[in-house]
Design a protein around this nucleic acid. Structure first.
Lengths: 160, 160
DNA sequence: AAAATTAGTGGACAATCTGCCCGGTCCTCA
DNA sequence: TGAGGACCGGGCAGATTGTCCACTAATTTT
């Protein structure tokens, strides 16, 4: 069992209004406060909720350009050393290794298109990176979201 | 001016321990509580902090497979209708329009490789989608993070 | 079938935090 | 020189948190 209906409502509520707090949640959900606390604790313990960190918008920090960069890695070296180096670049927001022999995909941001060139150069300079190919994100019609998934996770698979 | 040193320390602190609260922050930063509250309010108002929502891990929900799908869109239709349809699929976590004539990039998750096929089929079925090409993320050496960027945003550009 | 475990309820407690107000200081800009 | 803006330090009532407790109900184990 992953999560049940109550969990979904709880997460949705917190996602919509993160400031409300446990007590308010219990009131709206018509359950005891201890129940809400226990649910949250359990979800944190199980890794469903990984944190409540503040969400930062890179755009508001002046990083208005986002791009996805695909890296071709020299086969011999392996991924880790490259990933470690990439992690040192602040503009690299995430790195994934992907299917297709020695490739990686990373999301980067930059202050401008010109600045993007600088960031890409930083990446190219990483030892083991053979070639890069980048696409710029022009618009984001669907920003990152998980709520629909949370709801779906419950709808389908849950047996309680 | 975007953010200053105090903002960076504040964000970093909250990111590390989201539960500490305004008062505790003010103590650790050696500033008045009102200052911390004002800083946070300002950053929220400016859009730097977009929220404090709980961070959900799709893996813990049973969605262990992640992939990036590049869509080729029929030129005539435009992006919005396609994006709207994609938004209806819970497994689609985000959608970007990217450079290169009528293309979109989206991140999707699925319960398994077989399930990924189902999700991709859903995407292909969207009217206006001509072709898709997907890469599976095997590993994520650098998970999404913004803190280094926050620190960098301050280091370089700040004038206060 | 009895015992044990688990989840939830309702209540209580002290400690803490929040939102909000104030007066006063310092600094910058017009 | 004045007006703003930012910060400090303090105070206040009200709300919330973490943490206990005893009790019920349902499920699981023995």
């Amino acid at each position: 069992m992953t999560i049940d209906q109550l969990d979904v409502r709880l997460i949705s509520m917190l996602a919509a209004e993160p400031r409300i707090g446990v007590l308010e949640c219990s009131r709206r959900l018509n359950v005891a406060r201890g129940t809400v606390q226990a649910r949250l604790d359990r979800m944190v313990a199980r890794g469903v909720i990984t944190g409540y960190g503040p969400d930062i918008d890179p755009t508001a920090l002046g990083y208005g350009v986002m791009a996805f960069v695909t890296l071709q890695i020299r086969q011999v070296s392996g991924h880790s050393p490259v990933a470690d180096r990439l992690a040192l670049v602040p503009e690299v927001l995430e790195v994934h290794t992907i299917t297709g022999g020695g490739d990686m995909l990373c999301r980067v941001v930059a202050r401008s298109n010109a600045d993007l060139q600088r960031v890409i150069d930083l990446i190219v300079d990483v030892d083991g990176v053979v070639r890069t190919s980048s696409v710029i994100a022009l618009d984001t019609p669907v920003p990152y979201r998980v709520l629909p998934l949370v709801a779906a996770a419950n709808r389908g698979e849950n047996r309680n």
